[in-house]
């Protein structure tokens, strides 16, 4: 196991390096941050000064070399827009995104597994239909629409919850609720589908035919077998949340990584973009490794 994780860590480090090279060079294809930082009627001298101060006037490979050198000393560079270390900016945002993602994801996973497997138990039944339709409508409704209607109804009209911002636990209710909907719809469908396949497996049918009283036990065993695709999809959704919930964060004024990422990309704040992507990548790599380990635990036949 230790050896396996070690190998994986080395391979992931290579991926991280590849990702960094990719992002570094691709992002620099997208324009000049000087014209976005400075006003439109700034002089050429002002722009040149901005580039020189941030080392953007050097040849691309020299810039890259300098970046890697600084990175080896755990220096992610300065934010071009905020005049602060990029990694500080990213970590501040992460402190908000991480709890938001974890809470939402836990709720999604519990709700989706319970409701999805209940739906699968009587396929085509009323409960199954209701769960499917409601979750699908949720999964395909535009999130900004849901978010704004939720604010108008619950905050402005009923006055139950604050409109936006952070501070009290109440502030978290609406963002979590809106963020919950789409992954829930997706995962509930996958749970239902996998359970359907697993329940039709030969041994379950035999057990059911023989009238085994303890259906719940079978249920739990089936669930275990059905979990393989489910945790894969959960991983995908978790990765999306770690990348930040752009729309939800923007509308609710939630200072997370999604809003930071979109602002930094649109403003060409390269160092922040790079730092944010690398931090996210490490989180995603670790998560994927945990998922791969979980495969082996769920199904001991799977070995690497």
């Amino acid at each position: 196991m230790i050896k396996l994780i070690g190998q994986r860590a080395i391979a992931s480090l290579l991926s991280l390096l590849g990702l960094m090279v990719l992002v570094f060079f691709l992002s620099r294809l997208t324009g000049d941050p000087a014209v976005l930082f400075l006003p439109i009627d700034a002089t050429e001298a002002m722009k040149a000064n901005f580039r020189a101060l941030h080392g953007l006037d050097a040849p691309l490979f020299e810039q890259f070399g300098r970046y890697v050198w600084d990175l080896l000393q755990f220096d992610f560079g300065q934010s071009l827009r905020k005049a602060r270390p990029a990694i500080d900016v990213v970590m501040e945002a992460y402190a908000w995104t991480l709890p938001l993602a974890l809470i939402t994801l836990s709720l999604v996973v519990v709700a989706a597994i319970v409701l999805g497997s209940l739906a699968a138990f009587k396929i085509g039944g009323f409960f199954d239909r209701m769960v499917s339709i409601i979750s699908l409508i949720g999964a395909s409704a535009p999130d900004f629409w849901v978010a704004i209607v939720a604010i108008v109804v619950f905050s402005i009209n009923l006055g139950w919850l604050p409109t936006s911002g952070v501070g009290t636990p109440l502030h978290w209710v609406l963002p979590i609720a809106v963020l919950f909907i789409r992954p829930f719809g997706l995962i509930v469908q996958v749970v239902r589908g996998s359970m359907l396949s697993a329940l039709s497996a030969a041994y379950v049918k035999t057990a059911r035919a023989k009238g085994v009283k303890n259906l719940p036990i079978i249920f739990v065993h089936t669930l275990r077998n059905a979990m393989l695709p489910v945790i894969t999809v959960i991983g995908d959704q978790a990765a999306a949340m770690l990348n930040g919930a752009v729309i939800v964060e923007t509308i609710f004024g939630f200072p997370g990584i999604g809003k930071l990422m979109i602002d930094s990309i649109l403003q060409r704040d390269f160092n922040v973009v790079l730092a944010a992507i690398m931090v996210t990548a490490v989180a995603i790599f670790i998560m994927n490794m945990l998922i791969d380990i979980a495969y082996g635990l769920l199904d001991p036949r799977i070995r690497h």
């Binding site: 604010i151 006055g159 004024g253």
Partner: peptide, 13 residues
């Protein structure tokens, strides 16, 4: 807050 509807709603609320 970047959404105008939210800004207006905050004053309303």
């Amino acid at each position: 807050r970047s959404e105008p509807a939210v800004r207006a709603g905050m004053v309303a609320a």
